[in-house]
Amino acid sequence: MRDQPVLDVDDLRVEFRTGRETIHAVNGVSFQVATGETAAILGESGSGKSVTAAAIMRLLQSPPAFVTGGAVRFKGKDVLAMPIADWRDSCGREVAMVFQDALMSLNPVFSVGWQIAELFRAHSIASGRAADERAVELLDRVGIPDPARRAKDYTHQFSGGMRQRVMIAMAIALGPDLLIADEPTTALDVTVQAQIMELLEGLREEADMAMILITHDLGVVADAADNVAVMYAGRVVERGPVGDVLRRPGHAYTLALLDSVPRVQSKGGKLRPIVGSPPDLARIPTGCAFHPRCRFATDICRREAPPAVAVAPGCSAECHHVERVFNDG
């Protein structure tokens, strides 16, 4: 980690209020990302990782979503408190986001070159021919062959991987300091996934950007991230450098996640799926939210929310049984 973090999320809380119930999607998430660092947010569907990203970008529709607490500081400025127009002006220029499904994230009625050039025009950085030329340069930079011709094509004429490259080109167009990638490779097949991750990593290094990588894919986290925050039921349950956390987790949930992933080396070994399903976020279990599915669970897990316990230098886990888990893993 280096000096002041680019992004500092502190105790962020987000609720969705429907007519009948309140869904606690994010319940006190904190993490920091420093310049040049890749921070991964790891969690299964419904753990609140995408909502966290949307809250940071202020993309949530309110109602039904309400940010009920916490702060997001980007380069020291309070994102949630500033006027939305100011933040939108920073978006693209200083922070950018890549979405999971590039087909859905690009406008179907404009050519991709036009859409990238539009970004320069919207931020009044370049206009007309100059904007078009910069769009072609960007397409070239993200590895799209024959960029001058492909710039005239529409979204549906691109393959999944190429579309994601276009989306990435748009995200890095204005040279942001922070890139949030929300499951950038989930919709792609494995070989293309590797190419896209390589591209993202390369671009990040080149521009010394910070990157937040949101994913449920342990392989992607292990390959690309420096630090990881594991989310469960809207909380970060374990955090630390990727190597340490994935090698010897301190939280029962992280361990269970690792056990449920097939590995080539241990062929024939039994997979241990996590029993049950993620908790209903309108009725989060008391104590540790993971206890109904946890094989280490004891009485205290049902009664008390676990405090953060240091596992190793820079690592902490919110678990009552850190030692048992640590020694088991």
């Binding site: 978006c91 979405f99 970004l119 919207a122 748009m170």
Partner: peptide, 13 residues
């Protein structure tokens, strides 16, 4: 639609 969110995330008013 997601492309509207994407446009917002890239700074469109």
């Amino acid at each position: 639609r997601v492309f509207v969110d994407a446009a917002r995330a890239l700074g469109s008013s």
